[in-house]
Nucleic acid binder design. Structure first.
Length: 547
DNA sequence: TGGGCTTGCGCC
DNA sequence: AAAGGGCGCAAGCCCA
């Protein structure tokens, strides 16, 4: 059964539909929490416009739901998927369901209210009509199974995102503060440089004989370097590393410390860690490829430096799992490349590639694979490509074809049916006024080809990760006889890695679940193809100990 | 003063 | 050591 929830004139309505889509009745709901609590034992699939708009208040009320359809996320998939391109949904003009999600909640919630345009509020979206269009689009698809699986996985991801934000990532302010003090010195007054940052900056200024230098200003820094006889074209660390000068080492040190201070210093701590939990705002489907994004807090860029402050509660563990070499394995599976699958069967895919004789070292295998998936043309990676193509023709042909398709302005599609945005067509080179125009057009075309090349791999890897997490979530419920945050639960997700916060006694059971869920994700995407997705699991007290 | 852009760098 | 894909964020810069 489906229950479609809608807000109509500030009241909540619920419409029941049978699995076949037949209307079973409609009613007003005065107490949403009570209604959901009463219905959930029947395992309905809740259908709503936006999980972030409905689910947090349920969680606050102590209610969890098993499954849902997030109409806005599903709409985005169906709108652009080649599998549903002829559907009424995909051929309709842009409408409210194509609009970006409303302003998201941040710690300073008050500002979000004023960000919403009045017109946005006034527009009434009809979830029942939209759901009906979506079901028709799926039913009429050439491959309903795939797209249906994608919609379910995407929606499960939305539930998980809300739950992870609700639960929060355990974060010890005292440990973070200690770490900052060790590296930067005691917390300074607002706006002042911490002692150790100031000290290393003093050395830089002294050695560059530039007492007024602002090291945070690239142009100022470049000028000072020039005066010292160092010609650099940028102030990027890797370029500075090439230079020989006594100021370089402290300058690099300064950059490191300044980065930590500005990105994950005391200000970050004050803003994002509340009551011992970091609650980032996850944005499922926030990246074109289907990866999640986050908004605020930089959750997907947590430097390894500060992960030591992510500490399990007393009597609990953090069970950290990451999928080993996920993207190359996804490529092997997509291409049904038996050789590459075999290379990964023993565990270390890169070692397997070396063993096959394609390249000499593990580093070469890694850099060559990355080059294949990203479209490297130069450097060591570019040079190794032909050897990889000889050893694994099917896998390499798949990414090459994705790249050529993109260059022609065509759309590419992931395993479950997420399609790339339409590219521009580049055939109009004849209209180019000059050789420079032509080469610019060619470069744009190639850049789009690199994007589509990567899209199929990154996007399918994102689908695998969603299936993995959905399976983890479902299996963890078996260990849960009360409220989910009192039992093992997901607290963090990073593209190909998850963290489960678990009572110590259940850490082993969680490990089993993580492993089984990975196998299930592989089957969901690729059936019985002999491609394995091994995961590395570490049961630790703090996140810094993993990897 | 505020918005939008660039630079640089953290993560996968 | 650094070229190829995807991001978010902070600080400086530039202009209205």
């Amino acid at each position: 059964m489906f229950i479609v929830l809608a807000r109509v004139d500030s009241r909540t309505m619920a419409a029941r539909l049978s699995d076949a889509g037949g209307a079973l009745g409609i009613e007003y709901v005065d107490d949403l929490a009570a209604f959901v609590t009463a219905e959930e034992p029947q395992h309905p699939r809740w259908v709503w416009d936006d999980t972030a708009a409905w689910y947090p208040e349920l969680l606050e009320a102590g209610i969890r739901v098993e499954r849902c359809f997030d109409l806005r996320l599903c709409h985005a998939i169906l709108r652009s998927s080649v599998l549903t391109a002829t559907s009424a949904l995909a051929t309709a003009p842009q409408g409210v369901w194509d609009a970006p999600p409303p302003a998201t909640a941040t710690p300073d919630r008050e500002t979000a209210l004023f960000d919403v345009e009045p017109e946005q509020v006034a527009v009434v979206a009809d979830p029942l009509a939209e759901f009906s269009l979506q079901r028709a689009a799926v039913a009429g698809s050439a491959e309903p199974g795939r797209i249906q699986r994608l919609l379910a996985a995407e929606s499960a991801g939305a539930l998980i995102a809300a739950e992870m934000r609700f639960a929060g990532l355990p974060w010890r302010v005292d440990a973070h503060d200690r770490l900052l003090e060790e590296l930067l010195g005691p917390r300074p007054l607002e706006g002042a440089r911490p002692q150790k940052v100031q000290e290393v900056l003093d050395v830089v200024r002294d050695r560059l004989e530039s007492p007024e230098l602002n090291p945070d200003s690239p142009s100022d820094l470049l000028k000072a370097l020039g005066v010292a006889g160092l010609q650099a074209t940028s102030t990027r660390s890797w370029e500075l590393k090439q230079l020989k000068h006594p100021a370089i080492a402290p300058l690099l040190e300064y950059k490191k410390l300044a980065r930590l201070l500005s990105s994950n210093g005391w200000h970050w701590l004050d803003t994002w860690v509340v009551d011992g939990r970091f609650r980032p705002d996850y944005v499922p489907g926030g990246v074109v490829t289907g990866r999640w994004a986050t908004s605020g807090g930089g959750a997907l860029q947590l430097p390894k430096q500060v992960r030591g402050a992510v500490i399990a509660d007393p009597g609990w563990k953090l069970v950290v799992a990451d999928a080993s070499q996920l993207e190359p394995r996804i490529l092997a599976a997509l291409a049904a490349d038996k050789g590459m699958a075999e290379a990964g069967a023993a565990g270390d895919l890169y070692a397997g590639i070396v063993a096959s004789g394609a390249v000499e070292t593990r580093d070469q295998a890694k850099v060559a694979m990355l080059g294949a998936m990203y479209g490297a043309t130069t450097g060591e990676s570019g040079r190794l490509m032909p050897r990889l193509a000889r050893a694994y023709p099917r896998a390499i042909a798949l990414v090459e074809e994705a790249a050529r398709a993109g260059e022609r302005g065509e759309i590419v599609t992931t395993r479950l049916g997420r399609s790339s945005p339409p590219g521009q067509r580049f055939e109009g080179w004849s209209e180019a006024r000059s050789a420079a125009d032509t080469s610019r057009a060619r470069e744009r075309s190639r850049a789009w080809g690199r994007f589509t090349r990567n899209f199929v791999v990154q996007g399918t890897a994102a689908e695998w990760a969603l299936c993995w997490m959905a399976s983890i979530r479902r299996r963890l419920r078996e260990l849960d006889d009360g409220w989910f945050t009192d039992a093992p639960h997901l607290v963090f997700f990073l593209h190909d890695e998850v963290v489960v916060h678990a009572p110590t006694g259940l850490a082993d059971a969680v490990s089993v679940i993580l492993t089984e869920a990975a196998a299930e994700a592989g089957r969901l995407l690729f059936g019985d193809l002999p491609v394995t997705f091994p995961i590395t699991i570490a049961s630790v007290d703090n996140y810094g100990q993993a990897k």
